[in-house]
C-alpha cells in the first residue's frame, strides 16, 4: 500500500474512534440528534463532492434527490406497508433512474448545463411535493413513517440511529475513496483537468460524468431514506432549493476534490445554526459570509487548511532535523 493509502486508513480509523467516543461525551439527546443529522449531511456531501470536486460538475438539485429518497421511503413504508430496507433500495433505484434521465441530455454538452437542469428539477420536485398533497401530505409534511429495524430491533432512538447513520457515513467515505483512487477516479479527475486529453486516451467523458452524477444522487437518496425513518416525518422545506445551496456550500467549505471535504464541510456547517441560534434570522448571511471568506482566502476549503497546517508542521520538523 502506498503512503497516501496508509494515511487514509489512519485518518478513517481516527474518525471512527471519534465517532465511537462521541456519544459517551454527549449527554444531551438533542446534541446527539445534531450529530445524526451531521452524519446524513456527511453522506450527501461526500457524494456531491465526487461530482463537484472530481468530475467538476455542479448540481443545485441534490436536496431534491435527498427529498425524493425521503418521500419515496416514507410513502412506500407508511402508505403501502413496505419493509423500510426494501423501500430504501427502491427509492435509490428510482432516484438513480431520475438522475440518469437528467444527466444524459445535460452532461453530454460541454459547459455547466447541469446547474440549470438540476436547479429547475429541484423547483419541480418541491412544487410536486406541495401539490400532490394526497400522496405527500403537502405543505404540512408526511408523517407516520416507521423506523428501520435490524433483526427485530427498532432503530428509533437517537442513540441507536447514531450508530447506523455514522456507520453508513463512514462506509460512504470509504467507497468514495476507493473510487477516487482507481482507474475510474483518475479518469474523472483527468476529465476535470482536460476533457479532450482524457478522451484521447480512452476516457469516456460523457458516460463517466453521467455515472458519477447518478452515484452522487444515490448517496443523497440513501441519506434521505435514513432521514425519513429516523425522524418519522418529512416536510417539503427540508428539501427545497435553499437546502441544495447549503449542501453545495458544505462541499465548497469542506474542500472540493478532497475526500475529507464532505466530512469537514458537514461537521462544520451542520451545528453552526444551532450554535448561533441567537442569530437564527441571519443564518444565511453567516453561510454566505463563510463561503465568501473561504473562497477568497482558502479555496481548498477546510480539508485543504488542515493539509496546509500539517504540511507547515512537517516543514518545520524537517528544518529542525
Amino acid at each position: 500500500m502506498n503512503r497516501e493509502g496508509r494515511a487514509f486508513w489512519w485518518q478513517l480509523a481516527a474518525l471512527a474512534a471519534a465517532v465511537a467516543c462521541a456519544p459517551l461525551m454527549v449527554g444531551n439527546p438533542y446534541h446527539l440528534n445534531v450529530l445524526n443529522v451531521m452524519a446524513l449531511n456527511v453522506l450527501v456531501v461526500t457524494g456531491l463532492n465526487l461530482l463537484i470536486g472530481f468530475a467538476g460538475n455542479i448540481s443545485l438539485g441534490h436536496a431534491a434527490f435527498y427529498g425524493l429518497g425521503a418521500y419515496i421511503s416514507g410513502i412506500l413504508t407508511s402508505t403501502h406497508g413496505w419493509d423500510p430496507w426494501l423501500a430504501m433500495l427502491a427509492a435509490a433505484c428510482v432516484v438513480a433512474l431520475v438522475a440518469l434521465l437528467i444527466g444524459i441530455p445535460t452532461l453530454r454538452l460541454a459547459g455547466n448545463y447541469l446547474v440549470m437542469a438540476t436547479l429547475g428539477f429541484n423547483l419541480i420536485v418541491t412544487i410536486l411535493i406541495l401539490q400532490l398533497d394526497e400522496f405527500t401530505g403537502g405543505p404540512s409534511g408526511f408523517s407516520g413513517i416507521p423506523p428501520l429495524k435490524i433483526m427485530g430491533h427498532s432503530l428509533a432512538s437517537d442513540q441507536d440511529f447514531y450508530w447506523l447513520a455514522w456507520t453508513t457515513a463512514l462506509l460512504g467515505l470509504l467507497l468514495a475513496r476507493n473510487l477516487a483512487d482507481s482507474r475510474v477516479g483518475r479518469g474523472l479527475r483527468a476529465l476535470h483537468d482536460s476533457p479532450v486529453a482524457a478522451a484521447a486516451v480512452g476516457v469516456p467523458t460523457a458516460a463517466y460524468k453521467v455515472q458519477v452524477f447518478v452515484l452522487s444522487a444515490i448517496y443523497a437518496s440513501v441519506a434521505g431514506s435514513l432521514y425519513a425513518h429516523y425522524f418519522g416525518i418529512v416536510s417539503p422545506t427540508t428539501f427545497d432549493i435553499f437546502a441544495s445551496v447549503e449542501l453545495v456550500t458544505m462541499c465548497l467549505v469542506g474542500g472540493m476534490g478532497n475526500l475529507w471535504g464532505g466530512f469537514f464541510g458537514a461537521a462544520f456547517l451542520t451545528p453552526l445554526p444551532l450554535v448561533l441560534h441567537v442569530f437564527e434570522e441571519y443564518k444565511d448571511i453567516f453561510f454566505g459570509g463563510i463561503l465568501l471568506l473561504l473562497l477568497i482566502f482558502q479555496p481548498q476549503g477546510l480539508a485543504g487548511l488542515w493539509a496546509r497546517v500539517r504540511g507547515a508542521r512537517a516543514a518545520r520538523a524537517g528544518e529542525g532535523a
Partner: peptide, 10 residues
C-alpha cells in the same frame, strides 16, 4: 496536443 494538455492536478 499542441497546447499542452497534461492533467495538472494529477
Amino acid at each position: 496536443f499542441q497546447n499542452l494538455q497534461v492533467f495538472a492536478n494529477l
